[in-house]
Design a binder for these strands. Structure first.
Lengths: 336, 336
DNA sequence: GTGAAAGCGCTAACAT
DNA sequence: ATGTTAGCGCTTTCAC
């Protein structure tokens, strides 16, 4: 058992009042150097841990933020989470993680406990665009921000990359390398944040370069390796010519490598691929993937700082579009 | 603003005492069905969220557990975290994540806040074996368990695989496939949980099969892809013959694929590899990796349940050695 | 079956 | 510079 002295105990031992002990503990001033030393000495000798519950109750602040994560296994989320965690720790906040399920189905249950805990803020991390989740967050009266996703129906501030522009640039990059028959492994079109916009970016890049869009060069995935496999096989089965593929994420790009390999197609010799996200996997494949890099860690710290801003000032932060960049590795070949 | 009525408010509106409201809220019985309905109706109509801080203060329970994670980007940790999170949610617990840094250097700071928060328990997740961290946990008087690691100097219960046996079997598997010149990409020998034991398992398997151990066939990594690259290049540079390599983790196994590729060596044609962990990467490489599967998700749920047992009964749970299995994919060739 | 009241350990307003 | 005190919102013992 921990001894668990209270403020009162310390005060008694040090022969001062609880108010004084509280003052020195919180560096509020209004005490002599002498009493400060005395109090600190007692605490040091007898041991003392402040009681967060009592403090929270009184101050109506929990110094805790929650992060809502879909239950998906990619390094994507840990990198963001690392960023959030570091920023939180620097500012004296704790972070509660809530795995709301791949489709966010457990969000409602979690929102209840977050309400009871009086978390100071909520970060929704790359959640699937979903009217219900958004409304739950928006109506919780708890400061909230979104990372790597956004809400169309509610004004929840977000940090994200411009998905449309990113995929436009990815496609354009391939075109500049001499490719014209470019396949696209898309996310779900129903996904208004990373599905549709990226498809649109791809299409627009084609159009701006006077390359006709061809339906048979696109197939759909749900951003997973498995669905990537299926989608790429589908394209291959259509027997259309292509020299490059733009994939909606790194896992899907990796999938093209796998199915390509089984069919005797090697990258970038037989076709080129560009991924999206720059997750750890993109360095680890053979060949390593050229990809659109999202600054995941910074997105995490930025999200936390935006949230902190709202918590402290009460004013909703502005959303931020954060720059992406193309990191060139070895999955794209220049065509002459 | 949320209206935030208190128990007292509800009591007043419902014309009962706070005690009664508290009773119905906690299903304690001792009230008529009629009053129960009345109270619930008021709550439903006016809205009410219980205040966790007040409750925690009174009950001296936070219904929160903390997970200590090294700051490393592998799907390994998310899978365990998913398991912990699900088990926690099912039992009405929240989970706090603490990124203690790759070497655990931030553990001390975190232990302070966890003490103040009065978390009910702590799960140390695959932390580097480290006397200081262990002593911090053991002396915190907070129920603690370890996942995928253990402590030699303190009796903290753990859930893990038998690393020695697992690597013994991995090596043996290769031998049974006809390999005799087997390289080993080890973790640090200073790592007494996943470094030394795995090396020992490898050695013993060799010995039991009358294959002499050769120093020049082993190189050291710190379980990362990057150090895996370096270590495998080192082995290659020694110009010793080998037909297979056992890697201390999947990331290191993936590294052999990458350097092999650059040197024109393909797997499993030119050499075979077996990984460790069965993380997502093992399915995504070309070829996919044969590996030792740790049941990561179950290890997470088990860890939580062990912790819950100690929280509820006050008795330290027994440590558990959880079974691993070899999952065969395509990185190992049978030699005739 | 229901209520009154005492605290849990702290902060902060007020007094001195 | 320091102390007194009234709560924060809840649970729980004890009366009735």
């Amino acid at each position: 058992m921990h001894n668990d002295l209270t403020l009162k105990d310390i005060a008694k031992i040090a022969n001062v009042s609880v108010a004084t002990v509280s003052r020195v503990l919180n560096n509020l001033g209004g005490y002599s150097e002498e009493t400060r030393k005395k109090v600190l000495k007692v605490i040091d000798e007898y041991g003392y841990r402040r009681n967060a519950a009592a403090r929270n109750l009184k101050t109506k602040k929990s110094n805790t933020v929650a992060v809502l994560l879909p239950q998906v296994e990619t390094t994507y989320y840990i990198t963001i989470l690392n960023g959030i965690g570091d920023a939180a720790q620097q500012n004296g906040y704790s972070v509660l993680v809530c795995h709301v399920g791949a489709s966010g189905s457990r969000t409602k249950e979690y929102m209840n406990v977050l309400g009871e805990q009086r978390v100071d803020g909520i970060i929704g991390c790359s959640l699937p665009p979903n009217e219900e989740i958004d409304s739950l967050m928006a109506n919780s009266y708890i400061p909230s921000v979104l990372v790597s996703t956004l809400s169309y129906n509610y004004t929840i501030p977000y940090v994200k990359v411009d998905d449309y522009k990113a995929e436009y640039e990815a496609t354009n990059y391939l075109i500049k390398k001499g490719h014209r028959n470019i396949a696209f492994l898309s996310g779900p079109i129903s996904d208004v944040v990373a599905g549709m916009p990226r498809l649109q970016g791809y299409k627009q890049a084609l159009e701006d370069n006077h390359i006709p869009f061809r339906e048979e060069l696109v197939a759909y995935t749900s951003f997973s390796f498995e669905t990537g496999i299926r989608a790429f096989k589908e394209i291959l089965s259509r027997n259309v010519d292509f020299t490059a593929v733009v994939a909606c994420c790194d896992d899907v790009a990796a999938a093209t490598l796998s199915v390509g390999y089984k069919q005797g197609l090697t990258v970038p010799h037989d076709f080129s691929v560009i991924g999206f996200d720059n997750t750890r996997i993109s360095e680890m494949t053979v060949p390593p993937l050229t990809t659109i890099a999202q600054p995941l860690y910074e997105m995490g710290t930025t999200a936390f700082n935006m949230l902190l801003y709202e918590i402290e000032t009460g004013v909703k932060p502005k959303s931020q579009i954060i720059p992406f960049e193309i990191v060139e590795r070895q999955s794209v070949k220049k065509l002459r």
